[in-house]
Amino acid sequence: MVATPIGNLGDITPRALEALQTADTILCEDTRVTAKLLQHYGISKPLLAVHDHNESQRLPALLERLRNGETLVLVSDAGTPVFSDPGYRLVRAAIEADLPVTSLPGPNAAVTALTLSGLPPAPFLFLGFPARGEARIQEFSGLRALEQTGLQATLAWYESPHRLLDTLQDLIAVFGAERPAAVGRELTKKFEEMVRGTLAEMLAHFRQFPPRGEITLLVGPPPEDDTGAQDLDTLLQEALRTHSVRDAAALVAPQVKLPKRTVYARAMELAREKE
């Protein structure tokens, strides 16, 4: 696995160039994207597309080539392979087949944004691309539920510019407008931008300046005085005085903006403790 630049072509390591130059074949998401990178560095090697839609089908032939002693280099369109990019199935299959696998470190948009954000760097939780529509609210609500049971982490996603505003609105609905956040845009490129502030300020900024390019979105951990867990238990204990566990969960879930199944599970725990 070889990490490639996320924007600035100067961000490639000598080891990465050597690996590309000595590979028998380079496996890539999009041959057109990788061809441009290779052309820039004067490298000519066979390219084979390996992406989400064909990775499983290509595994047997790729493993056989590795068994025959070929050196295959896996790259993504930008950044570190497998990190929210194709390649996991191939890496897993090679490991299970006891074939040698190594990774040459390099650029990564999530880590770059994290170091620039000013948000707590550890722990952090990388979550890939957010879901869409109602599933996105459920995903965020699940994370908020984890915070109410003790999760204290900076959250990181990749996002497309045309979905950023909707995602920010959903984050505000679940985590609150004043939660600290940051958005990295076009990192390492000429028009790199790092916007820092609250979620409300992020939304206002990108409503005024429509986002373009590659986006990395980060949300800071809840404040130390966050009372979410206490609020949930207080509301449930009050509701359980006059309602069944199921009805109490249905009553409280909208108030705390959490999935009903999550609130139901906590209500069951409280009911058992009371017994």
Rank of each mutant, 00 (worst) to 15 (best):
V2K: 11
V2I: 15
V2L: 13
P5G: 03
G10Q: 11
R15V: 04
L20M: 07
T22E: 14
A23H: 03
A23V: 00
D24I: 10
T25G: 08
I26T: 01
R32T: 07
R32Y: 08
T34A: 11
Y41Q: 06
S44I: 08
K45N: 05
K45H: 05
L47C: 10
V50Y: 04
V50T: 03
E55D: 07
R58V: 04
A61C: 00
L62S: 00
R65S: 12
R67M: 13
E70R: 13
E70Y: 10
T71G: 12
L74W: 06
P81S: 07
V82N: 10
V82Y: 07
P86H: 08
G87W: 09
V91M: 02
A94N: 05
T102W: 01
A113T: 04
L116Y: 09
L116P: 09
S117I: 02
S117Q: 03
G118P: 07
L125T: 14
F126E: 00
F126N: 02
L127A: 11
L127C: 06
G128P: 09
F129H: 00
R132E: 07
R136A: 15
F140G: 03
L143A: 09
R144P: 00
A145T: 14
A145P: 02
L146A: 15
A153Q: 00
A153I: 15
A153S: 14
T154V: 07
Y158R: 11
S160A: 15
L164W: 09
L164Q: 02
L165K: 02
T167H: 13
T167D: 12
A173D: 08
G176W: 10
E178A: 11
E186I: 10
T188E: 06
K189V: 00
K190D: 07
V195I: 15
R196S: 04
E201F: 09
E201L: 05
H205S: 03
R207P: 09
P211W: 07
R212M: 07
G213I: 10
V219R: 06
E224G: 08
A229E: 06
T234Q: 12
L235D: 02
A239P: 03
T242H: 12
H243D: 07
V245S: 04
R246F: 05
A250P: 01
L251D: 08
A253L: 12
V256W: 11
T262H: 15
Y264P: 10
R266D: 03
A271Y: 03
R272N: 04
E275T: 15
